[in-house]
Deep mutational scan, measured.
Amino acid sequence: VTLFVALYDYEARTEDDLSFHKGEKFQILNSSEGDWWEARSLTTGETGYIPSNYAAPV
């Protein structure tokens, strides 16, 4: 399992994006889409796309 942590807060701009807060942890589901990764929040259980430059490996 690849775990990442949010470096900044992010507010979803589309219904496919995932809103999150700094410090929140994610499981990365798909990182082959370039700058946007499909991720599941370990806090909320929700799935959506996150900007890859807002996350770092745990």
Score class of each variant (00 low, 15 high):
Glu33Ala: 13
Asp16Phe: 15
Thr44Gly: 02
Trp36Cys: 07
Ala12Leu: 02
Leu3Val: 14
Trp36Phe: 10
Asn30Leu: 06
Ala12Val: 02
Val5Leu: 07
Asp9Ala: 06
Ala55Cys: 14
Ser31Phe: 15
Glu33Pro: 11
Ile50Lys: 00
Leu7Lys: 06
Ile28Lys: 03
Ser52His: 08
Ser32Ala: 12
Leu3Tyr: 13
Leu29Tyr: 07
Val1Cys: 14
Ala55Gln: 04
Pro51Gly: 03
Leu42Trp: 07
Arg13Gly: 08
Leu3Met: 11
His21Cys: 12
Thr47Tyr: 09
Trp36Gln: 06
Lys22His: 05
Leu18His: 03
Thr14Gln: 11
Pro51Ala: 03
Lys25Asn: 07
Ser41Leu: 10
Val58Ile: 13
Glu33Arg: 15
Trp37Lys: 02
Leu3Asn: 05
Leu7Gln: 05
Phe26Thr: 00
Gln27Leu: 15
Lys25Met: 15
Ala6Pro: 00
Ala6Gly: 04
Ala55Lys: 02
Arg40Pro: 03
Val5Trp: 06
Ala12Pro: 05
Glu33Phe: 12
Gln27Gly: 02
Val58Gly: 05
Trp37Ala: 02
Trp37Ser: 03
Glu33Cys: 12
Ala12Cys: 06
Arg13His: 10
Lys25Pro: 06
Glu11Ser: 10
Phe20Val: 04
Glu24Asn: 05
Arg13Phe: 08
Leu29His: 05
Ile28Glu: 00
Asp16Lys: 15
Glu15Gln: 11
Trp37Arg: 02
Tyr54Trp: 07
Ile50Arg: 01
Glu38Phe: 15
Trp36Asn: 05
Leu7Thr: 05
Ala12Glu: 04
Thr2Ser: 11
Glu11Gln: 12
Thr47Asp: 04
Pro57Val: 08
Ile28Thr: 01
Arg13Leu: 11
Glu38Gln: 12
Thr14Tyr: 15
Asn30Glu: 08
Thr44Pro: 00
Val5Asp: 01
Thr14Arg: 14
Lys25Asp: 02
Glu33Lys: 14
Asn30Phe: 08
Ser31Lys: 14
Phe4Glu: 00
Val1Lys: 12
Asp16Gly: 15
Ser19Tyr: 02
Tyr54His: 08
Phe4Val: 11
Tyr10Ile: 02
Gly34Lys: 13
Leu42Asn: 04
Ser52Asp: 03
Phe26Leu: 12
Ser41Pro: 02
Val5Tyr: 12
Asn30His: 08
Ala55Met: 15
Leu42Thr: 07
Gln27Cys: 09
Asp9Phe: 05
Ser41Gln: 05
Trp37Leu: 12
Gly48Thr: 01
Phe4Arg: 02
Tyr54Thr: 04
Glu38Asp: 05
Ser32Trp: 11
Lys22Phe: 06
Arg13Gln: 14
Pro51Ser: 05
Asp16Ser: 15
Phe4Ser: 03
Phe20Ile: 05
Asn53Met: 11
Lys22Arg: 10
Ala39Glu: 02
Leu3Cys: 08
Leu3Pro: 05
Tyr8Cys: 11
Pro51Leu: 07
Asn53Tyr: 12
Ser52Trp: 13
Gly48Ile: 03
Ala55Glu: 02
Gly34Phe: 09
Pro57Trp: 06
Lys22Met: 07
Trp37Met: 08
Tyr49Asn: 09
Leu18Ala: 01
Thr2Ala: 12
Thr43Phe: 08
Ala6Tyr: 01
Thr44Phe: 01
Pro57Ala: 09
Thr43Pro: 01
Tyr49Ile: 09
Tyr54Asn: 04
Trp36Leu: 07
Ala56Phe: 08
Gly23Cys: 06
Glu46Lys: 15
Ile50Gly: 01
Ala39Met: 05
Ser31Glu: 09
Thr44Tyr: 02
Glu38His: 13
Asp17Gly: 15
Thr43Leu: 13
Lys25Gly: 05
Ser31Gln: 14
Ser41Met: 08
Gly45Asn: 08
Trp37Asn: 01
Lys22Asn: 03
Tyr8Arg: 09
Gly45Met: 07
Ser52Met: 09
Asp35Tyr: 12
Thr2Gln: 13
Tyr49Val: 07
Thr43Ala: 11
Tyr49Met: 15
Leu18Ser: 01
Gly45Phe: 08
Ala6Ser: 04
Lys22Gln: 09
Tyr8Trp: 11
Ala56Ile: 12
Gly48Lys: 02
Thr43Met: 11
Ser19Ala: 07
Tyr49Cys: 10
Leu18Arg: 01
Ala39Lys: 00
Tyr10Met: 02
Phe26Val: 02
Ala56Ser: 10
Gly45Glu: 04
Glu46Asp: 09
Gly23Lys: 00
Gly48Arg: 01
Thr2Lys: 12
Asp16Met: 15
Thr2Pro: 11
Leu7Ile: 09
Trp36Ser: 06
Leu42Asp: 04
Thr47Arg: 10
Glu33Tyr: 12
Ile28Ala: 02
Ser31Met: 15
Tyr49His: 08
Gln27Tyr: 14
Thr47Pro: 01
Thr47Leu: 09
Ser31His: 11
Thr2Gly: 13
Ile50Glu: 00
Val1Ser: 13
Thr43Arg: 12
Phe26Pro: 00
Lys22Cys: 08
Val58Ala: 10
Thr14Phe: 15
Asn30Tyr: 07
Glu33Thr: 12
Glu11Met: 11
Asn30Ala: 09
Ile50Pro: 01
Asn30Gln: 09
